[in-house]
Design a protein around this nucleic acid. Structure first.
Lengths: 107, 107
DNA sequence: TCGATCCATAGCCAATCAGGTATGGATACG
DNA sequence: CGTATCCATACCTGATTGGCTATGGATCGA
């Protein structure tokens, strides 16, 4: 029930938002205008999504003149990686328990 | 824009649903009744969430008499792991590009 | 200085969805 | 059998939210 995980999942659940984050990962730093092209939605919508991504810590922004440059903060994905590892860990430990059980039954 | 990733993120975005999946990972196979205890929501709601988790491939169900046992399908998390790896990969390759650039500038 | 461009905010609307209650089918038990 | 338990489905409702347009502040270029 970690808050960080919740924010990440909720933020990345939206396809438009995830696509924006993906583009920033692929292409590096980009302006709002550049991201709006081929985003399939209007500029205000892109700005709002970028705002949410920023709140989630997934991107950071840098102002230069009229432009705002956004870039991906990959480290923010850590809680997500941790969560999957944790789930896999539970799985594995239960599997070990099963192995233990079978081993003991075998004797 | 993989469909599998989209389903996973959307399904795991809900806290109640994620908590159910977590319990199944931690505790192994459980009935709907057992999951409803401490879920904080009503039994029909639990059933609906389990249905969605099943659609997403994250759990599987097994019927025995009046009971329905659900269990986590950890392999279903693969697309999520792949996605994070891919993002990290883009990040890394851009970093490599930068290294390349710096190296060439150095000469 | 004036017009144009870039971006963020505000306000609105439609769609989605998580929650509840009601209910019924299926199975177990006395 | 008849009753109780387990679970899923149907239906409704309020809240959330992703999209739009309108607008305004800020900066650049002429």
């Amino acid at each position: 029930m970690s808050e960080a995980q919740d924010v990440l999942f909720r933020t990345l659940a939206d396809p438009t938002r995830r696509a924006l984050f993906e583009r920033l990962c692929r292409e590096g730093e980009r302006t709002v205008g550049a991201l709006t092209e081929r985003a399939g939605v209007s500029q205000p919508v892109v700005s709002k999504h970028l705002g949410l991504l920023k709140q989630a810590g997934l991107v950071r922004d840098r102002h230069q003149g009229r432009h705002t440059y956004y870039s991906a903060q990959l480290g923010a994905l850590a809680p997500l990686v941790d969560w999957t590892s944790e789930m896999a860990g539970f799985w594995q430990s239960r599997f070990d328990d099963l192995e233990d059980l079978l081993k003991r039954m075998d004797q």
